[in-house]
Amino acid sequence: MNKSYRPIAVYCDLDGVVQHENVRWSRKKGIYMAEPHRTLFEWVPHLERALAPFPQVALVLSSSWCVWPGYGKTLRKLPQGLQERFVGGTYHQREHGSDPRVKEAFRTMSRGAQVCADVLRRKPVQWLAIDDDTENWPEWARPRLIACDGNTGVSSIEVQQELQHKLHWCVHEIEKEARWRSELDGCSDRS
């Protein structure tokens, strides 16, 4: 498989998914973990292990971190292997421009609306979202949402199992469509 082609997009939040939800920002400290005995990105290894059997998965950053500190700065905080899976973010200045009104409009959208708008723009073959923000997702998108508890995120065994189950389903759907297209091609060749 061509490593650069990844037909499955997983829209990944950070706060409440790869780290505890209690992340704060101050001028003095920058971004920091406000929850005692927790660290930034502490659950990343769980995500990496869950994705390891699926080289066809790309990640899309769907987080307030897209807006600040920004997509590029955020990626630099992640392990190299995970960085290589990212293909973009739901908000990116290169895509959305620098108009502060556009940025503010994006910030006021629900996470579900942000992800769905990106799905319609990016058009992945299959997609899922992993997020602790489960409010206001369109009904048609809810089956693709893996809901996390912001206190445990992807460290939860149940979340890891659901992610893997849904990724297997995505792979199956892609393979089923490939077989269907192959059969169609075979029919047209006989004509």
Rank of each mutant, 00 (worst) to 15 (best):
L82A: 06
Y71C: 06
G89N: 06
E95K: 14
Q93E: 14
R85A: 05
G89D: 07
W65C: 09
G81H: 13
G88N: 08
W65H: 08
V67E: 10
H92I: 00
T74D: 07
Q83D: 03
R76H: 11
Q93M: 09
P69W: 01
P79M: 06
E84N: 03
Q83W: 09
G88M: 08
G81L: 08
R94I: 11
W68A: 01
F86W: 13
P69Y: 01
E95T: 14
G70I: 02
R94Y: 10
G70F: 09
K73Y: 03
V67K: 07
K77T: 15
R94Q: 12
R76F: 06
P79I: 04
R76D: 11
Q80A: 07
R76N: 11
P69F: 00
P69E: 01
Q83Y: 09
L75P: 04
L78R: 08
C66A: 02
Q93H: 09
G81E: 12
G72P: 00
T74G: 05
L82Y: 07
E95C: 03
H92K: 08
K77P: 01
F86T: 03
H92P: 00
E84Q: 10
G88L: 14
W65F: 12
L82Q: 06
L78K: 13
G70Y: 09
L75E: 11
Y71E: 09
C66P: 01
Q80G: 02
G70P: 03
W65D: 03
Q80I: 05
Y91H: 13
W65I: 04
E84R: 09
G70L: 04
F86S: 01
G88H: 11
G72H: 14
G88Y: 13
E84M: 01
K77A: 15
Q80F: 04
R85C: 12
H92V: 02
L82W: 09
F86L: 02
R76S: 12
H92C: 11
P79N: 14
R85E: 04
E95N: 04
P79H: 13
Q83P: 02
P69T: 00
P79T: 03
Q93W: 13
V67C: 10
Q93L: 11
Q83A: 05
R76Q: 14
F86I: 02
V87F: 04
G70H: 08
G88V: 13
Y91I: 00
Q93S: 10
T74M: 11
R76M: 11
L82P: 03
Y91D: 01
F86N: 03
L75D: 05
C66S: 03
G89F: 12
R85K: 10
H92S: 08
V87N: 02
Q83E: 11
W65T: 02
P79A: 03
Q93D: 03
L75C: 10
G88K: 12
R76I: 01
L82M: 14
R76C: 07
W65R: 07
C66V: 00
L78I: 08
G72R: 15
T90I: 05
W65M: 08
L78H: 13
L82V: 15
T90G: 04
G89C: 08
P69Q: 02
T90E: 06
G81Y: 07
P79W: 11
R76L: 14
W68E: 08
F86H: 05
R85H: 12
K77S: 14
G70V: 01
